[in-house]
Structure formats: structure tokens, C-alpha cells
């Protein structure tokens, strides 16, 4: 309301610590993509499954990930040509 608050802003150091804890938990556990070949392999396998049914190129797949504290999400987008090339 007055443009400033009587309480101090959350110090940036605590943000730094939280970010490190989340990241290092993922890196140490080896899940969530820290294993070097897990995601390329996942990508190849997904492409192979889709290709059993449709014609898609190598670049048609896009994998995005968001690692969270409690929950991580994996978003997989597959683009098809204008008309579905069903086999």
C-alpha cells in the first residue's frame, strides 16, 4: 500500500540455498535426467513407438522438463505434418 513493507524482503541467500538443495537432490539421486543417457534413450524409444503408427521425423519430438521440490514434470510434444500420416 505504501510501496514498501515493514518486513524485510526474503533474503536472496535463502533463495540460493533452496535452489541448490532442489538441484543437488536431483543430481545426486540420478533421476530426473541427471543420468547422462537416460533422456536421449527415452527420446529414441518414444520416437520408435510413435513410428509404428505414424510417419514422423527425428525433429518432431520436443522434450521439456521442469524439476521441482516435490514434483517434477516432463512435457513431451510431438509435431505431425499437416495431415496425420497414419500408416
Amino acid at each position: 500500500m505504501f510501496g514498501f513493507s515493514l518486513r524485510p524482503r526474503k533474503a536472496s541467500a535463502s533463495t540460493a540455498k533452496e535452489r541448490l538443495q532442489i538441484l543437488l537432490a536431483h543430481e545426486r539421486s540420478g533421476c530426473g535426467g541427471a543420468r547422462p543417457d537416460c533422456l536421449p534413450q527415452l527420446q529414441r524409444e518414444i520416437l520408435n513407438v510413435i513410428r509404428r503408427h505414424m510417419q514422423i521425423g527425428d525433429e518432431a519430438i520436443d522434450i521439456r522438463m521442469e524439476r521441482g521440490d516435490e514434483l517434477s514434470s516432463l512435457e513431451i510434444n510431438i509435431e505431425f505434418p499437416g495431415k496425420l500420416g497414419l500408416n
Binding site: R19, G33, P40, R64, M65, R67, G68
Partner: peptide, 9 residues
Amino acid sequence: MGCERRVVF
């Protein structure tokens, strides 16, 4: 850069 949680490849 603050994108550490989004690295895939």
C-alpha cells in the same frame, strides 16, 4: 541464468 531446473539436453 536461473534455468537449472529445465535442462534436458
